[in-house]
Design a protein around this nucleic acid. Structure first.
Lengths: 364, 364
DNA sequence: CTGAAAGCGCTTACAG
DNA sequence: CTGAAAGCGCTTACAG
């Protein structure tokens, strides 16, 4: 393969100049730059990432950690993040935890990531104290998406899960429902994954504000999956006297619930109303009423917030983050990834999308 | 950060010996290895990937290219591939084309991948002649999944799309259907993405074998998405005299079709039967009859086939592919990634899963 | 604006 | 089984 010396020789300059010209540094004359670019083009030169990283100290790579890429929210986030990162000239190293506890530990605790990436994005990744220690030792810039994980000093992009849950529950209350079930995650989960506890809290708050007392017999635990929602609903129905409405903590749970209801001979929404959270691709198709959350936008925004400080840092050194053929990273912002000031999370809006799965309860 | 010299000093050996001991090379005495491992442990040493790659010439990284990570098949494949790769000590660089033509070109045509990865996995990635040339110049080992993309000299893992489609169509024929519609990809697609053409062929073959002539007015084009299936079905119904059954080229199309039918006041399967291909997570829940294909298994198998030759090559050099803490790559196989012998694709089995979305046509 | 030279942190023949 | 030394291909002060 052609190396930087080949380009230097052909262009009649030093390798240092080739390096500068190719990275778009300002300290190269236009004429020289032109000759270098032509030579690189002619030789089909591409920089060796390993060498560049070793010499430059930056990897141009971001680790993105998700619980399960196959779930709608995570797939959608990763798609948006991938686009942003590659556009900015960064590589995306994917870590899919796949529900395997030991994998989370290996990803977060080994020094694996240390010299491998410039920054870390954690999407709804449950974190234990030991994980936080490991991340602190890693001393890399990072960001989290979703309230599932909070790392001291890292910014966070998410929705207001409590408010979203309140809105969903209030929608059912407004329709006249009083026996409203909830299906969400396991509250005894030892991991600090707060999404489901937040949504459960919003549900209970809305009930209380309406003068109702949450009924533990209507509060079900489930995985955040279609199958989990299905099972939880079967169990719920087995308890006798079904609710007139179900607030599912995510659309996948809601879909499972709809199926279980149908299998039990109950119609949605005539017999039981169902509402979820997400606005999954399928939700429109299934007529599922939901609290829509901007998954792709959370991914894009988090990616931008993560790269901005990197870009700023590179600029200070007279450098540029982007690869030669990639667009520039958006203008640096005031955000600092490290530092003592804990920043408040960036909260993106959700909105109620009413479809066919919710309606007034039957007049008994 | 601690470097290899720190470990060498603490263990009282040379950096060369540290390097060998840490990678599990056989040419290190047990006692020395123990001391080195203890020193590395004590210092929390982790090798610098950039330095290791530059010196060693291997990146320990695989590029995985998918059209859209958000679609069931691709998410499921990536999840399985990710697990296998990380288990074997490899990093996964994710490229999501996202339906953007220029992205495909940039990913495949630039020398971007050349010094960045050891191997490439292309999942149902449409390839033009120019792309094939670029891949050939890259001269990296690779593998493809799905018939969508075929690269000369690369192995391929897939299902038999023609047979799967025949089975699906025959299922409908066996139930007594005669007016069977098909919804699949755009046949004029200039990209060599053959999945939908293969499935269309199977559909037509099954009809002909039953003595029926394929009716172009029952043959619809669609994106491989829920929304695409929905739109195509709306259009199909607008043509008047609906079919008694629909064979959708994938489950996502089938789901869109079911919705459109429901919206049109038609019942599934009483008025119209629907069958898909995939066995999407949601299919069981929706009661969708389908031709199940092993997505995760295709990913795992392809990952293994891709790494085996790399492992073999490393072994020849007295090396080992896996990282110190990772498991060994499965035993090398006879497969050679380069070489003139075109290997036949590895075909994984599919199977008909009958659920509630198919039944006999109404007696008119 | 440009170049010579050191250095990034490893791995690999080579020699013993 | 082990070490000294070269070299992987860049980037970065430093000097001019």
């Amino acid at each position: 393969m052609t190396r930087i010396d080949d380009v230097a020789r052909l262009a009649g300059v030093s390798t240092a100049t080739v390096s500068r010209a190719l990275r778009g540094l300002p300290t190269v004359s236009a004429a020289t730059r032109r000759r270098v670019l032509a030579a690189a083009e002619q030789l089909q030169y591409a920089v060796s990432p390993s060498a560049s990283r070793l010499a430059g100290g930056r990897t141009g790579t971001v680790a993105v950690v998700v619980p399960r890429i196959t779930r709608w929210f995570f797939g959608t986030v990763v798609e948006a993040v991938e686009e942003f990162l590659h556009h900015a000239g960064y590589d995306l190293l994917l870590y899919n935890l796949g529900g395997r506890e030991q994998v989370r530990q290996r990803v977060l605790r080994t020094a694996n990531l240390h010299k491998r990436v410039d920054a870390i994005m954690l999407v709804a990744t449950p974190l234990r104290p030991a994980d936080l220690t490991a991340l602190a030792e890693l001393d890399l810039p990072g960001i989290t998406i979703s309230s599932g994980s909070t790392v001291p000093g890292w910014p966070c992009v998410r929705i207001d899960d409590v408010a979203a849950a309140r809105t969903a529950t209030r929608h059912l209350l407004d329709l006249g429902h009083r026996r409203i079930a909830h299906i969400s995650g396991d509250p005894d989960d030892e991991l600090a994954f707060t999404t489901h506890t937040d949504r459960r809290r919003g549900y209970q708050e809305a009930l209380r504000r309406a003068g109702l007392r949450p009924d533990p017999r209507l509060d079900m635990e489930s995985q955040f999956t279609i199958d989990g929602g299905n099972q939880a609903t079967v169990e719920l129905l087995a308890r006798g006297e079904p609710p007139t409405a179900i607030f599912a903590a995510c659309d996948e749970i809601a879909m499972g619930a709809m199926t279980a209801l149908r299998d039990a001979g109950l119609r949605v929404p005539q017999d039981v109303s169902v509402i979820g959270v997400d606005d999954h691709d399928l939700s429109a198709v299934l007529g599922l009423t939901t609290i829509a959350q901007p998954a792709a936008e959370q991914g894009r925004l988090a990616a931008r917030m993560l790269l901005d400080p990197l870009g700023a840092a590179a600029a200070e050194l007279g450098g540029v983050v982007a690869e030669p053929d990639a667009d520039r990273v958006p203008a640096p912002r005031a955000t600092r990834v490290h530092g003592p000031t804990p920043r408040p999370p960036v909260i993106l809006p959700t909105r109620l999308v009413v479809r066919e799965s919710t309606g007034p309860p039957r007049a008994n």
